[in-house]
């Protein structure tokens, strides 16, 4: 399963990498536009297009009915009731495509989330590395091996109640840094990204199951039998801006994909 996750992640890396030198918003816009188009095509082939078209016509007819009987309150409210009923029928026709699209859209959202929800540390910024180990392991045997470019600012802080060891670390140089963690001869690596580019960020590395690996695509899960339960660090939230306008990545993704989908539906011949 991890191989498949890695292939999908690599595809996203490749596509978003095209816009690597640009404002991070550009890559997000590109993904949103492509998603809008692809989802539109999926919508076309998974929905009953004829029924949707008919339902839309009926809704429009009842809206016109309101205009037609502008002096008849009874007919106006009857028309409004009919609009609501037809609208429910219309929504029913969206169920099948919704189910079909649920999984791919979820994957896209996760892939975007690991890249656009947070940003890498900038040189000089600090974060806390948290290492949780299995019960019974002596916390004093847990070691951190920081690579060049990463400074360990504090002594290990051991929290026996949680079986955790924490370090505050600081990024000193841009780049992908692999933090080595060891308990005896058992080793694990946690990637830390630093710099201004868009990179896939993993805050938590744990022993994810077959499905959970899709939710943590940025880093291979810890192997079963590892003494480490979880290795985690946190990144700051990303402030996405284009021409001075900031927005949450999810909002950008939804608005752009939906607007683009609506804009091209006429050309693609899709009833939405």
């Amino acid at each position: 399963m991890w191989g498949l996750v890695r292939a999908v992640t690599a595809a996203f890396d490749g596509f978003i990498g095209i816009f690597g030198g640009w404002n991070p918003m550009v890559g997000l816009l590109a993904v949103s536009i492509v998603t809008g188009a692809v989802m539109l095509v999926i919508f076309r082939y998974t929905s009953n297009q004829r029924a949707i078209a008919r339902q839309k016509e009926l809704i429009k007819a009842h809206i016109l009915e309101i205009r037609l009987f502008k002096d008849d309150l009874r007919l106006q409210f009857a028309a409004q009731r009919k609009i609501l009923v037809e609208n429910l029928r219309y929504m029913r026709h969206a169920l099948a495509p919704m189910i079909v699209m649920l999984v791919p859209v979820l994957i896209i959202l996760i892939q975007l989330d690991v890249r656009y929800a947070r940003r890498p540390l900038l040189p000089g910024e600090t974060t806390v590395l948290r290492v949780a180990v299995e019960e019974g392991i002596d916390l004093s045997s847990v070691r951190l091996d920081a690579p060049e470019g990463i400074a360990v600012e504090t002594e290990p802080m051991r929290i026996p109640g949680a079986n955790e060891v924490n370090w505050r670390i600081r990024a000193e140089r841009e780049g992908s840094h692999d933090l080595g963690i060891a308990v005896g001869s058992e080793r694990a690596v946690k990637r830390l990204e630093a710099g201004e580019r868009v990179a896939k960020l993993s805050e938590v590395r744990d022993r994810a199951g077959i499905l959970a690996v899709w939710a943590r695509p940025a880093e291979r899960p810890l192997p079963n039998g590892s003494p480490f339960r979880e290795v985690a660090l946190s990144y700051p939230e990303r402030d996405l801006r284009l021409f001075g306008i900031g927005a949450h990545w999810l909002l950008v993704f939804f608005v752009v994909s939906v607007v683009f989908g609506f804009a091209i539906k006429g050309f693609v011949g899709v009833e939405v």
Binding site: F43, L84, P97, M98, F254, V272
Partner: peptide, 18 residues
């Protein structure tokens, strides 16, 4: 988030009607 843009098309239209 996970209704996604595809189904979102239809639901947004419905919302507009409402």
């Amino acid at each position: 988030a996970y209704i996604g843009p595809g189904a979102g098309f239809a639901f947004l239209s419905s919302f507009f009607v409402l």
